[in-house]
Amino acid sequence: MNTNPKIAVFGGGSWATAIVKMLSENLEQVGWYMRSQSAIDYIKENDHNPNYISSATFNVNQLYLSSDINEMVKYADILIFSIPSAFVKTELDKITEPFTSKIVFSAIKGIIPESGLIVGEHFNKILNVPIENIGVITGPCHAEEVAMERLSYLTIACKDEEKAKLVSKFISSHYIKTKISDDIIGAEYAAMLKNIYAIAAGIAHGLGYGDNFQAVLMSNSIREIKRFIKKVHRMKRNINNSAYLGDLLVTGYSVFSRNRMFGNMIGKGYTVKSAMMEMSMVAEGYYATKSAYLLNEKNNTKTPIIDAVYQILYENKNPKTIFKNLTELID
């Protein structure tokens, strides 16, 4: 395995920008694919992303920027995808360069709507990337705090421990601590599911529920995550680790959480469409809710919180009524 690989990040949003910043601490050059050529031109001129976490500045001489996804696939040995899950397939469909021999890491905390799969499974089952070449970057880490270089923790999961260690080394810095894991499927499902519970937390806040209820909601949420993941991928894991519980808590409580913000707007009476129009960023939990609900129809796990969020977002049920019912189903 190449111990001095070329690494590229795919995506132009806040989390992609944060990952480029982390890698820039350790690499002489970082590849960065963005579909917007105007955003690339702006970065070259002004040293920061025009649209997301603009406080994160770059030495543009370190960046290999391109709006040609095939150029970036050809360039890199390790591909880190941080594109909103709703747009992943559209971007992947552009790729003509062979990449089944590449190491592919997902930093996408969502599910691909077209296949109903988490990103790692999509790469493996649909695009034939070997499972040992697939990894996940996850954990309780907001892009905005990375930009401010506030201490954050990430979990790097891969079946191949050496590849996890390699990516971990290039992401670590004085403000980023990392640990490795072999629970690639469970960690990625947890990263997807916690967005749904953050929406639930936001809805509760919008409806006027207080901190006491929020604590009970989060307590039930981690148990629901444990039941769900156990059904889809049974293995030994500590659900209280930061990749699971930590990520849930920061997404459920933080002012930086777009999923909580989205839920809060729904709780205050916004329609799904109007809430989405007002937000400048994608709330991954919206798409994850439908996929998790449909998957659970086959697995038949007890998930009253997912069910409640689904009814509100996709069946246009009244949030106040649904949450009143939910209070009788959780403890």
Rank of each mutant, 00 (worst) to 15 (best):
G13P: 11
S14T: 14
K21G: 12
E28Y: 08
Y33A: 01
M34G: 04
R35I: 15
A39D: 15
N51K: 14
V73G: 05
K74W: 01
F87H: 12
T90S: 12
T90Q: 12
K94N: 10
P98W: 11
V104E: 02
F105C: 10
I112Y: 04
E114W: 03
I118T: 11
K125N: 11
I126M: 09
I126N: 09
P140F: 04
P140C: 07
E145T: 12
M148N: 13
R150C: 04
S152R: 07
I156K: 08
K165V: 01
V167H: 05
K169P: 03
F170E: 03
I171D: 06
I171C: 14
S172Q: 15
S173V: 06
D182V: 05
A198R: 00
I199D: 06
G210A: 13
F213R: 07
M218E: 02
E224I: 04
K236P: 01
K236M: 00
I239G: 06
S242H: 15
L245F: 06
V250I: 15
V255N: 04
R258C: 02
M261Q: 10
F262P: 01
G267H: 10
T271S: 15
Y287E: 05
S291M: 07
L294H: 04
N296A: 11
K298R: 15
N300M: 11
T301V: 15
Y310M: 09
Y310D: 09
Y310P: 09
Y314G: 04
N316H: 10
I322V: 15
L326A: 09
I330S: 11
